[in-house]
Amino acid sequence: MDPRLHIVTGKGGTGKTTVAAALAIALAGRDRRVLLAEVEERQGISQVFEVPPLGSEETRVARTAAGGEIIGLSVEPKKALLEYLQLFYKLGRAGKILEKFGAVDFATTIAPGVRDVLLIGRVYEANRRRADGKHKGEAPPAFDSLVLDAPPTGRIGRFLSVNNEVAGLAKVGPIHSQSESITRLLESETTVVHFVTLLEEMPVQETLEAVDELRAKNLRPGSVIVNMVREPELDDTALEQARAGRLHKPSISAQLTEAGVTVTPELLDGLLDEARDHAHRVDLEREQLALLEASGLPVVVLPALPGGVDSGSVRELAAFLQEQGLGA
Rank of each mutant, 00 (worst) to 15 (best):
P3Q: 06
I7M: 02
T9V: 04
K11G: 00
A20F: 02
L23Q: 01
L23V: 13
L23I: 06
A26T: 11
A28Y: 11
R32Y: 14
A37N: 14
V39H: 10
Q43G: 02
I45H: 06
I45E: 02
F49Q: 00
E50T: 02
L54G: 01
L54W: 06
G55Y: 01
E57G: 02
A62C: 01
G68D: 05
G68K: 03
V75P: 08
K78A: 14
Y84H: 09
Q86E: 04
K90T: 05
L91M: 13
E99W: 13
G102A: 09
I110G: 12
I110Y: 13
L119G: 03
I120K: 01
G121F: 03
R128W: 01
R129E: 12
R129Q: 06
K134N: 01
K134C: 10
G137Q: 02
P141R: 03
D144G: 07
D149V: 04
P151W: 13
R155C: 07
F159L: 09
L160C: 11
N164P: 12
A167V: 06
L169I: 13
K171R: 14
K171W: 15
Q178F: 12
Q178R: 11
S179M: 14
E180M: 09
S181N: 10
S181Y: 09
T183H: 08
L185F: 15
E187A: 13
S188F: 07
T191G: 07
V192S: 09
F195M: 05
L199D: 02
L199E: 04
M202H: 15
M202L: 14
V204W: 07
A210S: 12
E213P: 08
R215W: 00
L219Q: 11
L219A: 07
L219I: 05
S223L: 04
N227Q: 10
V229Y: 03
V229Q: 04
V229G: 03
D236L: 11
A238P: 02
E240N: 08
Q241V: 11
L247H: 03
L247G: 00
A254L: 02
Q255N: 04
Q255W: 08
V261H: 05
V263P: 12
L271P: 03
R276I: 08
A279M: 03
H280E: 14
L292Y: 02
V301F: 01
A304C: 07
G307K: 07
G308W: 05
E316G: 10
E316M: 14
A319E: 12
G325D: 02
G327L: 05
A328V: 13
